[in-house]
Simulated assay, not measured.
Amino acid sequence: MDFEKQYTVDPAHIDVQGIMDGLYYPFYMESCRHDFIREVLGFDLEEQAHQGVFMVLSQYTIKYLRSLKKDDAFSVTCTLYADKSGGPRLHFKQNIVMNGKVMTTAVFTGTCVPAAGGRPYLPDAIKALVADAPQLEVETLK
Rank of each mutant, 00 (worst) to 15 (best):
D10P: 00
D10C: 07
D10V: 02
A12R: 13
H13D: 02
G18W: 00
I19R: 01
M20K: 02
M20H: 10
L23F: 07
Y25S: 13
P26I: 10
P26Y: 03
F27D: 06
S31V: 09
C32H: 06
R33W: 03
D35T: 11
I37N: 04
E39D: 15
V40G: 04
V40T: 13
L41S: 08
L41P: 00
G42M: 02
G42N: 03
D44E: 09
D44A: 07
D44P: 12
L45M: 12
E46R: 14
E46Y: 11
E47I: 08
A49C: 06
G52C: 08
V53Q: 05
F54Q: 11
F54A: 12
V56I: 14
V56Y: 01
V56C: 04
V56W: 00
L57W: 02
L57A: 13
L57F: 09
Q59S: 15
T61F: 15
T61N: 15
K63M: 13
Y64Q: 09
L65V: 08
K69H: 15
K70Y: 02
D72K: 14
A73P: 09
F74D: 12
F74Q: 13
F74T: 08
T77R: 13
T79Y: 02
T79K: 15
L80T: 01
Y81C: 08
A82L: 04
A82Q: 10
S85C: 07
S85G: 04
S85F: 05
G86M: 10
R89I: 05
L90C: 12
H91E: 13
F92W: 12
Q94K: 14
N95R: 15
V97K: 10
N99A: 15
A106V: 07
V107G: 05
T109K: 00
G110F: 01
C112H: 06
V113N: 00
P114L: 07
A115F: 06
G117H: 03
R119S: 05
L122Q: 01
D124F: 02
I126M: 03
I126C: 00
K127Q: 09
K127M: 07
V130L: 03
V138K: 12
V138D: 12
V138E: 13
E139L: 14
